[in-house]
Design a binder for these strands. Structure first.
Lengths: 105, 105
DNA sequence: CCAATAGGTAACCGATCAGTTACCTATGAA
DNA sequence: TTCATAGGTAACTGATCGGTTACCTATTGG
């Protein structure tokens, strides 16, 4: 797998557990074990998810003693927002069409 | 794979070829062979991508004679927009912090 | 009617996925 | 100093991925 693919934000957010981790981190940073407890998965599984998120630069890790606190770094999500921007007009049109269709009855 | 996973819009947009197909369909519907030509992939590959997009309800197919024209159906993307909405405030904060940091110098 | 065309799909391939267990290092506390 | 704790990681597993080739059906035009 090449570096670009590894850092791909779309790949990072494709997994529901990773999205849940990001959602959880919105409430504040957390060490790995805390996350593992929250998500009823083993620590290595969470650790691997965090690695993917780190590669996509969606989290950063801060070492405090023997703990590693992971914090949300949401900026790369803007890439997705940017891509979706081009569709906003279209689904607005779709909704308008639906509305018009319903009103025509 | 369960039905929910099959219809998952995040899974559907995780692949760059599928996102390119969606982008392409914004310019208007297209039959499978036209897409296969555009993306330098074999027809079955495109056909499978279209199936995934169809399961996620991101495209719909219209049969015209022996052609099947695929059209964009962007509404499910709103789910992603909705999820991202919760992060908008945060990266705004991040940008503000960066701005403040730069101005402090 | 029949040859050409559009396109779905099964079977297969190598790569990647998400998860596990087992093991390792590093740090902190008694 | 030594034991407990935090957490990374290698190796393995079964599932899924994206792509191919080969084959099938349905529709069209001459």
């Amino acid at each position: 797998m090449n570096a670009a693919t590894k850092a791909d934000v779309y790949r990072a957010i494709a997994d529901p557990t990773r999205r849940a981790i990001l959602d959880r981190l919105r409430a504040g940073g957390a060490p790995v074990n805390a996350l593992a407890a929250d998500f009823a998965q083993t620590r290595p599984a969470i650790s691997k998810h965090l690695r993917v998120l780190k590669q996509a630069r969606l989290v950063k890790e801060q070492r405090i003693g023997r703990e590693r606190v992971y914090r949300l770094e949401p900026l790369p999500l803007q890439q997705v927002v940017g891509w979706l921007e081009g569709y906003r007009a279209m689904w607005q049109t779709n909704l308008d069409n639906l509305k018009r269709h319903l009103e025509k009855k």
